[in-house]
């Protein structure tokens, strides 16, 4: 039997999930949850490149999501850009900032990136909170409509807002996953994984460690920025929460919980952590408690992350 490559298999599973799941949706609310899972999944795919491939940790990725989100809110009003181009502008700014922050830091070994990004994330969040004239402050700001759904309607394809964002974010996630999986098998991806194993060994075989780490950081910042833009455009409203420290932690947690080394695992982690708070509402005031407990148990018993641990268990049974 011809074996599918891991890349095609992952993409097929994802595409099937995106297309088949709506058949089982009892109401429009599930499209909303699905769209959120895809947006978080996209941001977490960026974390896979940075943390899973290159072994670097960022504690300020929400800052890039904030830049992407607020670009969509501010650029159409102040620069007259259409929202889609505003998202591109957000990507450019995020990428440039990641480059500026990462360039000096990533020459160093150790936890410097975590500390620097922590500061960066808090800085972005402070600017968004305090520059009231521009950003609307802690109360947030309205984001203009993307306008694509209206276009589709003109072409005779009339779908609800929830359905539109479900499929739009689903496609974005597929593209993001495809790029991340291609990167993994490219020479750059192999070099990244090599430096993850040992920076000294990687250097010895001629890998430019600092440059590669910087590349991974910039790429993952772009992922976060796009995810922030998608969230803002979908919600048509954004507050500085999107750039908050808790959101950064949430992204890293999703990646680690699902399995930071694999794209599918990280997306699974995003799915679980997005769904859990919705499912756990039945526990009312004990919700947070149960959520914490579930996460602890997962980390204790599925130490490598949800997907890798489960796969290992399955394989173990086969052999």
């Amino acid at each position: 039997m011809p074996r599918l490559s891991a890349k095609s298999a992952t993409l097929l599973v994802l595409a099937a999930l995106v297309v088949v799941s709506p058949l089982f949706f009892p109401s429009g609310y599930y499209y909303r949850v699905g769209a959120l899972i895809f947006v978080n999944g996209l941001a977490v795919t960026g974390i896979v490149i940075l943390t899973g491939y290159a072994g670097q940790i960022s504690l300020g990725h929400a800052g890039f999501a904030g830049i992407g989100g607020y670009a969509c809110a501010l650029a159409p009003v102040h620069l007259g850009l259409p929202p889609a181009l505003a998202a591109v502008l957000g990507v450019l700014i995020s990428g440039a900032l990641a480059y500026l922050v990462g360039r000096p830091i990533l020459r160093l070994k150790g936890y410097y990136l975590a500390v620097a990004t922590l500061g960066f994330g808090i800085l972005v969040s402070m600017v968004l909170n305090n520059e009231r004239q521009l950003t609307g402050g802690p109360d947030g700001i309205i984001v203009p409509d993307l306008g694509l759904r209206g276009l589709l309607k003109d072409w005779g394809l009339n779908i609800s807002n929830g359905e539109f964002w479900y499929f739009f974010c689903g496609i974005a996630l597929l593209i993001g996953a495809w790029i991340a999986l291609n990167l993994r098998q490219s020479p750059t991806g192999r070099a990244l994984r090599a430096l993850h194993g040992s920076e000294i060994a990687a250097q010895t075989v001629g890998i430019d460690v600092a440059r590669l780490k910087l590349q991974a950081f910039v790429i993952s910042a772009v992922y976060a920025s796009v995810a922030g833009s998608l969230l803002a455009l979908q919600n048509k409203f954004i507050t500085p929460d999107v750039a908050g420290f808790m959101h950064s932690i949430e992204m890293v947690t999703m990646a680690v919980l699902g399995g930071a080394g694999s794209v599918l695992g990280a997306i699974l982690g995003a799915g679980v952590l997005t769904l859990l708070p919705q499912v756990l509402t039945v526990f009312a005031e004990f919700e947070q408690l149960v959520l914490g407990l579930v996460m602890m148990l997962m980390m204790i018993f599925l130490r490598e992350g949800l997907l890798p641990s489960l796969l290992r268990k399955l394989r173990g049974r086969d052999e």
Partner: peptide, 16 residues
């Protein structure tokens, strides 16, 4: 207090 969650819950209240 998370506006993103509030939007999800509002959708849930209305649709579900």
């Amino acid at each position: 207090g998370d506006p993103n969650k509030a939007r999800t819950f509002a959708t849930r209240l209305i649709e579900n």
